[in-house]
Computed example of a mutant assay.
Amino acid sequence: MPKVTELTFFSEGLKLKGLLYEPDDLKPGEKRPTVVCCHGYTGMKDVYLLPVPERLAVHGYVAFAFDHRGFGKSEGVRARLIPPEQVEDIRNAITFVSTLPSVDTDRIALYGTSFGGGNVVVATATDDRVRCVVSVVPVGNGERWLKSLRKHWEWLKFQDVLAEDRRQRVLTGESRRVDVTELMPGDPHSRQVIQEKVKAAETYTQGYPLENAEATLRWKPEDFAHAIAPRPILFMHTECDGLVPIDECYALHSKAKEPKKLVTIPNADHYDVYQFVNPDVFEKVIAESIKWYDRYLKADAPQERIAEIA
């Protein structure tokens, strides 16, 4: 089994917590390719993300999964999600792992799922230390995504709610908190998973700030996708995703340049990519991810191969 160590680093003065997974055959002084893993909108790293770094370590990688500011064990305003701040957390996580003795600083990659799948696109586009990236069921345009989850009249009403919250924030300094499903209402399957799995482990009893949604409206990872090349990016999405429509992934893929690859998983919904919901789909996701990392991070994959078409 991999060695797991809880570690602490700082991002813009806030103390963030993460778990480092190291292969059990790691020798003293040896450096391995490393993957930084990033969670999604609800911030439930411990609920659904950890099987990913664990499996990567089994396949010889060092992997690091951390809680963004405001989530999990990290400091910050509880459940507050401002996307550019999360990208800064990712950049600081890369800097942090680069200081660790088991990490090969020339072979660092990212893995992001759901909202984190969009965040890793931006982080990779703006940080040339990232050698390759995997983006799973990602959000490509925050406004388009939130609008897709609502009927037209619901969208108009939601905009009014956000406008009122903006006024109250400047008057009181506080954003009204709501249930996460008010921010991202999904299909029945997604709601069931959130109710049965996510909320059972949720520590954000006061809800999620409405300002998260306003910040999400301005977040457009697809505008950054073209800047990743010539570094390779793998996109994966579930065809029956009722929370993040597959068109989000198509948009990102269409704007990314080669080398790139798009994998669609049939008959699967959004949360099926997580082991605790659908182990079979998770195995497909992890197998594709490991093939991608093996191709572009292993010692026998020279840097010039990054210019190849996947």
Score class of each variant (00 low, 15 high):
4 V>P: 03
7 L>V: 15
11 S>V: 06
11 S>K: 07
12 E>Q: 15
14 L>R: 05
15 K>F: 07
15 K>P: 01
16 L>E: 01
17 K>L: 14
17 K>E: 14
22 E>Y: 03
25 D>L: 12
29 G>T: 07
31 K>H: 04
32 R>Q: 05
35 V>Q: 04
36 V>K: 04
38 C>Y: 00
39 H>S: 11
39 H>R: 00
41 Y>I: 10
42 T>Y: 08
45 K>R: 15
47 V>G: 06
49 L>A: 04
50 L>H: 05
51 P>Q: 05
53 P>F: 07
55 R>E: 09
56 L>S: 01
60 G>M: 10
64 F>D: 03
66 F>Y: 13
67 D>H: 15
74 S>K: 06
76 G>H: 06
78 R>W: 07
80 R>C: 13
83 P>V: 07
88 E>K: 11
90 I>C: 04
91 R>L: 12
93 A>F: 10
97 V>I: 14
99 T>G: 15
100 L>S: 02
101 P>D: 10
102 S>T: 14
106 D>Q: 13
107 R>E: 00
110 L>Y: 05
111 Y>K: 00
113 T>I: 14
115 F>H: 05
116 G>M: 02
117 G>Q: 03
118 G>Y: 08
119 N>R: 03
120 V>H: 05
121 V>R: 01
124 T>A: 15
127 D>Y: 11
128 D>M: 08
130 V>W: 00
131 R>P: 04
132 C>Q: 02
132 C>S: 10
137 V>F: 05
138 P>N: 06
140 G>P: 07
149 L>R: 02
153 W>V: 05
159 Q>L: 11
160 D>I: 04
165 D>T: 01
166 R>G: 09
167 R>L: 12
167 R>H: 05
167 R>A: 13
174 E>F: 08
176 R>P: 13
177 R>P: 12
178 V>H: 07
179 D>Q: 04
179 D>S: 14
183 L>T: 03
183 L>Q: 05
186 G>D: 08
186 G>V: 06
190 S>A: 15
193 V>H: 02
196 E>P: 00
197 K>W: 12
200 A>V: 05
204 Y>H: 10
204 Y>C: 14
205 T>E: 05
210 L>M: 14
214 E>I: 08
219 W>E: 09
220 K>C: 08
221 P>N: 03
221 P>E: 03
225 A>R: 00
234 L>F: 11
235 F>V: 06
238 T>V: 14
241 D>M: 11
243 L>R: 01
243 L>K: 00
243 L>N: 06
245 P>Y: 11
247 D>P: 01
248 E>A: 07
248 E>N: 15
250 Y>M: 08
253 H>N: 08
253 H>L: 05
254 S>L: 11
254 S>H: 09
255 K>S: 02
257 K>N: 10
261 K>Y: 14
261 K>I: 03
266 P>M: 10
266 P>I: 09
270 H>T: 06
272 D>P: 11
273 V>M: 01
275 Q>D: 12
280 D>W: 12
280 D>P: 00
280 D>S: 14
281 V>P: 06
285 V>N: 01
287 A>T: 12
287 A>C: 06
288 E>C: 10
292 W>R: 04
293 Y>S: 09
294 D>N: 15
294 D>M: 15
296 Y>G: 06
297 L>V: 07
302 P>I: 04
303 Q>W: 04
303 Q>G: 00
304 E>H: 13
305 R>G: 08
